[in-house]
Design a protein around this nucleic acid. Structure first.
Ligand SMILES: NC(=O)c1ccc[n+]([C@@H]2O[C@H](COP(=O)([O-])OP(=O)(O)OC[C@H]3O[C@@H](n4cnc5c(N)ncnc54)[C@H](O)[C@@H]3O)[C@@H](O)[C@H]2O)c1
Ligand SMILES: NC(=O)c1ccc[n+]([C@@H]2O[C@H](COP(=O)([O-])OP(=O)(O)OC[C@H]3O[C@@H](n4cnc5c(N)ncnc54)[C@H](O)[C@@H]3O)[C@@H](O)[C@H]2O)c1
Lengths: 210, 210
DNA sequence: ATGTGCTTGTGAAATCGTTCACAATCTAGG
DNA sequence: CCTAGATTGTGAACGATTTCACAAGCACAT
């Protein structure tokens, strides 16, 4: 594997994540090799797209044969940085925060929830998915102590920007935000937004333009 | 407003949804007009992008002045199909399903939750956000009776494809899926996936490629 | 050892989306 | 009514991503 010369397109990264999922299923099913065409079918794309995506990182296949499911799994894991454990904190122990905290799947994929924070005294102290909710006032010290890599923001949009700034200062360089806030963070912090209202609006547009 | 000659790019639709949010804030704040530059700043894009996005649907501004916040709000609402109520059903009354069902914000933006379904007899009959959970066995008849437009799939990936097919047959043409399933639906059904594990993996990639 | 069939890896072409740049048009002020 | 200043709307240029198309490489059969 070689790191790409120039920065990788986000769609490519997203597809790699999908390929990984299908590869795991294929490996589970006992398939030793898989062709770009089969991977493409699973992911709803084309074989050329699959090969191009992979070619940014190296050549992992055998002409005439395809890819070893196991080897390609390992390679994509390494490309995506999934060959290690990531330490997550959740900020906001409400509906979404609890759902994320209680989701088994994340830990199984290497994302360990090591801390949960809330501002509401009624929530602080209670356990959620095996983790006790801490007071958000102690965010910085706790996040440093826990050596958190990523944070999930599941709190009202109003206070999200402030918390994001504090997280960045405490050394968290990756944030998944469920609020609709516009976060201002240093350029070495990556923010991804999951905006459910927006997704519904895109569906609405699709319905009226059918 | 005119419908675009050819199909609109998805990034454009997503940005329209964001513009709408900022416009509402500006209108609330009493601003009568707004320039493409100001809208661009709110949304983290460029003024040319804003004007281009809008130009696909008509010319809503006044040269030298900008856009009337109120009029542009109305126009974007109409473009996105938000000038009506949409009727939603949620399939899966678990962690994510409950979070969505209990979210006030959707109703406020015209998305009304009219039905919730689950396969677990223990969940059926209980109320969630003012709606009683129905048995998924009655999905088709209930969905038709409720005249549902959209569905949120918050259930295990295994059964998602089957349920998606049944929803399509029952006249639901828009699906927001939280599972990681690959849904096979007729071409007149739009599916959007919210894949949280994938989002974390994109963050992981960003961290290791910093 | 050679041929056949299949599949990769990758330049080149095509397509798609964003940014540029400027004429057209508006308001406001004298 | 005319000018100054601002901002839109949009072709054209640019940049990025996807698709095409094919030579190169490998496995397997004969
Ligand atoms: N539930 C949904 O389906 C849904 C849908 C779309 C968007 N969202 C967004 O996701 C976010 C979370 O939604 P939710 O439904 O879980 O809300 P919620 O009200 O259930 O939970 C929010 C939690 O954040 C805590 N909180 C408030 N201020 C805080 C602060 N400064 N620091 C730490 N914690 C703080 C609250 O005490 C509460 O426990 C919100 O921004 C919401 O708009 C949720
Ligand atoms: N909770 C999270 O943070 C999270 C994160 C990533 C992905 N997801 C995905 O979202 C989906 C829902 O997750 P969750 O955490 O709410 O799970 P959950 O287990 O809490 O809830 C799932 C619900 O679906 C119901 N169900 C099962 N089969 C059904 C069927 N055939 N028809 C109707 N209902 C059925 C179950 O009875 C249960 O109530 C899953 O696909 C999960 O993988 C959840």
């Amino acid at each position: 594997m070689h790191t790409p010369t120039r920065k990788t397109a986000e769609p490519t990264v997203r597809r790699l994540s999908l390929y990984l999922r299908y590869l795991e299923a294929f490996e589970q099913a006992g398939r030793g090799t898989i062709s770009s065409g089969e991977l493409a079918q699973s992911g709803g794309t084309t074989s050329a797209q699959v090969r191009k995506d992979l070619s940014f990182f190296g050549s992992f296949g055998k002409r005439g044969l395809g890819y070893s499911t196991h080897e390609l799994t390992v390679h994509i894991r390494e490309i995506l940085g999934l060959d290690r454990q990531w330490r997550l904190v959740i900020i906001g122990a409400g509906k979404i925060g609890s759902a994320v905290a209680g989701h088994r799947g994340f830990r199984d994929r290497g994302f360990e929830i090591v801390g949960i924070f809330d501002a509401d005294p009624h929530r602080v102290g209670h356990a959620l998915g095996g983790v006790t909710v801490s007071d958000v006032r102690h965010l910085e010290t706790e996040v440093k102590r826990l050596r958190a890599d990523m944070a999930v923001l599941a709190m009202p949009a109003e206070s999200a920007p402030e918390v994001a700034t504090r997280l960045a200062k405490a050394g968290v360089h990756a944030i998944l935000d469920f609020s609709t806030a516009q976060l201002e963070v240093p350029s070495d912090v990556t923010v991804r937004s999951v905006n459910l209202a927006l997704e519904l609006e895109v569906l609405s547009f699709a319905l009226v333009n059918r």
